[in-house]
Amino acid sequence: MRKALKLGLFLCIVAGIAGLAIAYVNDLTQPLIEQQMEAKKLNSFQEVYPEIEEVKDESEQYLNSNTDPLLTEVHVIYQANTPVGVIYMVEPSGYNGKIQLLVGADILDKKITAIKVLSQSETPGLGSQATESFFRSRFQGKSMGKQLEIVTKEPVEENQVLAITSATITSQAVTGGVNVVRQHFLDNFGG
């Protein structure tokens, strides 16, 4: 019995020392990690909305049980204290799981400023091309007025978007996400 206690105590001491060391390093690295995540977020925000003076996370205000569950975050961009743009985080389902998508929209023009795929698990080389600029640019400047639709031939209408070759499902998922954003945008930021 005494031996068991001794061994248990030894294990506790080892675990205690390990725990303390980790806690110490955690204190050192945690601020750095948070800083980096913040910087990364701001960077990706700037990619979908070029000039950001001030941005506020207003997800709680704009998202509730009635809004589309695909929408996860709403950030409003202010310029001289008036809202000028919105950045949405939306998570449509692609070919192989969720796609995390940022969509920037301008309140004045009612146009999409840009989109960006944050994370995806689509087929490498096919659906994963959704992250590349050639596909992203197909959404740039599209009007919020009309439902976007994906086409496989050269688009003729303003609201048509050319799909990625052999990755129609992924293209449709991204467009679906943008359309969800569009609906919410029209309902909340003037139609």
Partner: peptide, 12 residues
């Protein structure tokens, strides 16, 4: 608030 001990705790 000691999520950083996750790996150690889980393996134990």
């Amino acid at each position: 608030e000691i999520e950083y001990l996750q790996t150690i705790a889980f393996i134990l």
